[in-house]
Amino acid sequence: MPEYTEDELKARIRGGHILESPDEMTPGYRRAIIVQLTVQADTELISAPAYWLAARHAPSTNTQVSAHAIIQDELAHANIAYRLLEDMGVSKEQLVYGREPHEFKHPYGFDQPLDNWAELVVANGFFDRAGITLLSDVHRNTSYGPLKRALIKVDMEETFHLRHGEVWMRRLARAGGAATELLQRCVDWMFPMTIEWFGLPDGLKRHSGQLDYQLKGLTNDELRQVWMSSTVPLCESLGLSVPAHYDEGREEYVLDYPFPCQYDPEAKHWLFDDGEITWDAVFERWKGRGPMNEIYVESVRRSRGTVSAWLN
């Protein structure tokens, strides 16, 4: 156990101190980084079955290869994050195989079905952009050395996923007709889905410790702005409409719909007309999980028991 208090550790970190092993963590630091890494690992893990089921819609062998290369990357990233947790004394076995599907910490967006090739590439363009927005901020700022180093690989590969998404969005947008209409329908449900992913606005944010211990650098609202500053111009350049615009006066992106608002997962439709809801109502929806939650979780672990039984 370290011989310093929580406040002393925070002060050291503010001075640029980097932690190199779990035995240097105070209980508060350990709690905060376990939450952060669990969300990161679960998100990478569950993106794999989401993309895997969607990869069936790949239109050629080449696109099959790139879709599966992305899935392989995501699984490797999950593995790396769970391994970091294991070093902190958290059991990967328990996290992956011992929890109920609803206990996983990935965002609600990865509980949704991706039903065609357009939805997969917009997921790469939007969701992976959210991933790289969050993780590159962690990479730049984290006070935990092993995580900082692990993220070099992760950031490189997430950039490839993002390019894959953007290149394909461009192709579909140029095609016109049914392709462009489908692309617009994807944007309509996936843009607000990603906006919500960044979580509570700063004004309502409960104290998490992730900023105090410098496990990340930017706030939720700042990260949302970073994501929009790439995504809104991309969509505009492709002739796609998005429910957000840049406000010259405020010098920031603003949303053109009530935020947060309710979502109908069966119809893949945001209920803008019903107006703003409370964040408690959002948490309620997240807690209830989305339509693919159990299917995705079970698809990454269904053979575990059988194979373990053969070997033991």
Partner: peptide, 16 residues
């Protein structure tokens, strides 16, 4: 791993 000849062998990660 090392990227090229002449470069240091670097710790790049871990696996189970």
């Amino acid at each position: 791993a090392r990227k090229n000849r002449g470069e240091p062998l670097r710790h790049i990660g871990y696996i189970d």
